[in-house]
Write a protein that binds this DNA or RNA. Structure first.
Ligand SMILES: Nc1nc2c(ncn2[C@H]2C[C@H](O)[C@@H](COP(=O)(O)OP(=O)(O)OP(=O)(O)O)O2)c(=O)[nH]1
Ligand SMILES: [Mg+2]
Ligand SMILES: [Mg+2]
Ligand SMILES: [Zn+2]
Length: 608
DNA sequence: GCCGTTTTCGGCCCGACTGTTTTCAGTCG
């Protein structure tokens, strides 16, 4: 098809192969190998083709000879013989069917065999006509469920993800609601929201209780609950009016730590961690850490094993199989300790090297925290497109106990955002000086300078040298190709003064993809020059993304946690910047605005 | 398909809930 795929297209093709193999009901471990390969390819920092050209693809975890060959082919011509063959064997509509909730490869095969259904449209028609219920293994309820799944898929609701900030507002309300129950001994947020992912697919909650049914009922009584998706002894799933799904698991208090760990994820982290447990002779699930039974103690074995089985206590719920003794686990830290590992914070549990690091004792122990941050960077005011005045922003910062605040309004070319010209910039400096006399927080004066089309910044050096801080951001002319945008940013980051790369890739989550740019090349330029990367805490941005933040700190580039505030309320975005930085393995010492104001000022001052 | 300070073959994480099942497969988390 097309030549020269990038790593995301390669990952997409590997996932498509995986999905098509699923339809063929191939060995699940082989299918997983394709998913692992896709993740490994995406995690590559920098140029995948370079790695392929050097014949080093098999150094990636989960890539062997077979996948390396296919990746090479994908890079060259955008497809592989296997993918071509698979595509030729299956109608394209079958792949779409995999996206229908509650429909997997087995049911698709059954429907295809019985009714010739090979597309979403055909399934919809068959459900509407009541033909699906006639297929063996299907009934009225399944048909109705599929219709509902089709409706949600059509409405684009089935795969929608919600911004972390919005999800946390809902989860705060839910947690308060559940904690008010006398049956609740403990209730906590888990899942991707606890890991600080920028968007979440649902809300996952965990609770400890002696009366799980009572807590489940309490969830159903939450005013925003619209539908009950499933209700069992330990797990209840509901859909809220907003469309957001909420999963609640409830266990007795002695299993709370392992449940919290389980529901926090991620899936890939668990697969690897449980593999490690197994190597050590344990088995791990939400029901706890157990010793594996000795291999000799099988039903076919001699007398003592049978006697042991007869004496075994009642199996607890969720643990029907033969298990060895249970190791009490009182906390997540105790769980990792029991497996000989350093504690892995939730934000790092993505199987991106954290378990290898935990084994080697190489995990960062001083990941940045909200309490470490002394000042906020990147604030807009009514001088450009902010809604609060300098005084209002400063008072809000005082209320939060912040040590300093950096006013960085837009530069002149940002007409759409009321960018400042040199004269207004001077007058703004005077106003900041006068506001400073009324507040405790130290006010610093900077700019968010547009990176122009040619990579120049929007201010002459003579202006920049009067400022405390310069954020350099791309706001316009976004429709360049990757080579042009990379060249533009490399030039911008190479100027011989200190600058902060603002919202590096311009993404707007669930709205606008990042503009095409080779981030690693820009980071290389920044590492050779003077500057820092911003982790923009605006919940719609969270930019740079964690893997790029990690690539920055691997190059020794310092980090600034920013709020990009256009209102006083937005100063609270700092927590999202912190979460995103932690997901990028950022330590306290990597972050310039954990320093006292004078240190910070010296570190970021453009000249000198 | 990947992988290996116990292995180059034989493992690969583990469980909840639903529906239609007469004993559990399928899907999802
Ligand atoms: N052991 C194990 N745990 C799983 C598996 N799938 C999900 N989990 C656990 C870990 C997940 O973080 C947790 C919640 O599942 P979700 O599907 O909600 O995923 P998560 O919250 O991570 O991401 P999301 O934003 O909801 O898509 O359940 C699995 O296949 N095996
Ligand atoms: Mg989730
Ligand atoms: Mg979930
Ligand atoms: Zn901006």
């Amino acid at each position: 098809m097309h030549a020269m795929a990038d790593k995301f297209e390669v990952a997409g093709a590997l996932r498509e192969i995986g999905a098509l193999l699923e339809l063929e009901e191939e060995n699940p471990f082989k299918i997983r190998a394709y998913e692992n390969g896709a993740r490994a390819v995406e995690a590559v920092a920098g140029d995948l083709s370079a790695l392929a050209a050097a014949g080093r693809l098999t150094e990636l975890p989960g890539i062997g000879e077979a996948l390396a060959k296919k990746i090479g082919e994908l890079l060259e011509r955008g497809s592989t013989d296997l993918l071509d063959r698979l595509r030729a064997r299956h109608p394209p509509g079958l792949l779409d069917l995999l996206r229908v909730p509650d429909l997997g490869p087995k049911k698709i095969a059954a429907l295809h065999a019985a009714l010739g259904i090979a597309s979403v449209e055909e399934l919809e028609a068959a459900c509407a006509a009541g033909r699906v219920r006639t297929v063996k293994g299907f009934g009225e309820k399944t048909e109705a469920r599929l219709l509902e799944g089709l409706r949600r898929l059509r409405a684009r609701a089935a795969e929608a993800r919600v911004l972390l900030a919005d999800a946390l507002e809902t989860s705060d309300a839910l947690l308060a609601h559940l904690r008010a129950s006398p049956a609740a001994l403990e209730v906590q947020l888990a899942g991707s929201a606890r890991r600080g992912r920028e968007t979440v697919g649902d809300l996952d909650l965990v609770a400890a209780s002696r009366e799980p049914a009572s807590l489940s009922a309490r969830l159903l009584a939450f005013p925003l609950v619209k539908d009950v998706i499933a209700r069992g002894d330990t797990k209840t799933s509901v859909r809220l009016a907003s469309g957001l799904q909420v999963d609640l698991r409830v266990v007795p208090p002695e299993d709370f730590a392992t449940l919290l760990h389980h529901l926090t994820g991620s899936r890939a982290h668990h697969v690897k961690l449980r593999g490690i447990a197994r190597e050590l002779g344990f088995t791990l699930s939400e029901w706890g850490l157990h010793r594996l039974p000795a291999p000799a103690a099988r039903p076919a074995a001699a007398g003592p094993a049978i006697a042991l089985a007869a004496d075994a206590p009642e199996p607890e719920p969720g643990a029907p199989g033969p298990l060895g003794p249970k190791i009490p686990i009182a906390s997540e830290a105790a769980l990792y300790r029991a497996l000989g590992l350093a504690y892995v914070p939730p934000e790092l549990r993505e199987d991106t090297g954290e378990l290898e690091a935990a084994r080697a004792g190489a995990l960062p122990e001083d990941l940045v925290t909200l309490e470490d941050v002394r000042g906020v960077v990147h604030c807009h005011t009514t001088w450009s497109d902010g809604r609060a005045s300098v005084l209002e922003m400063a008072r809000a910062a005082d209320a939060l106990g912040l040590e300093y605040l950096t006013v960085t309004d837009h530069s002149g070319s940002a007409h759409y955002a009321g960018g400042l010209d040199a004269d207004r910039l001077r007058r703004q400096r005077d106003e900041i000086a006068s506001v400073q006399e009324q507040v405790k927080v130290r006010l610093l004066h900077g700019t968010e300078a547009d990176v122009l089309e040619d990579g120049a910044l929007d201010w002459p050096d003579a202006i920049l040298e009067q400022l405390d801080v310069v954020i350099a951001s791309v706001h316009s002319r976004l429709k360049m190709d990757e080579a042009q945008m990379t060249a533009r940013l490399v030039r911008a980051m190479s100027w011989p003064f200190f600058k902060i790369w603002g919202h590096g890739t311009g993404r707007l989550l669930e709205e606008r993809p990042p503009y095409p740019v080779r981030v690693e090349e820009v980071l290389d330029a920044l590492a050779r020059s003077r500057g820092a990367v911003e982790v923009n805490g605006d919940p719609r941005r969270l930019d740079l993304a964690p893997r790029h933040v990690r690539a920055a700190r691997d190059r020794g580039i310092p980090v600034v946690l920013s709020v990009d505030a256009h209102s006083a309320r937005a100063l609270r975005y700092l927590r999202f910047a912190v979460l995103t930085a932690r997901r990028g393995w950022v330590r306290r010492g990597d972050v310039l605005n954990t320093r006292p104001v004078d240190d910070f000022r010296r570190a970021v001052r453009p000249f000198g």
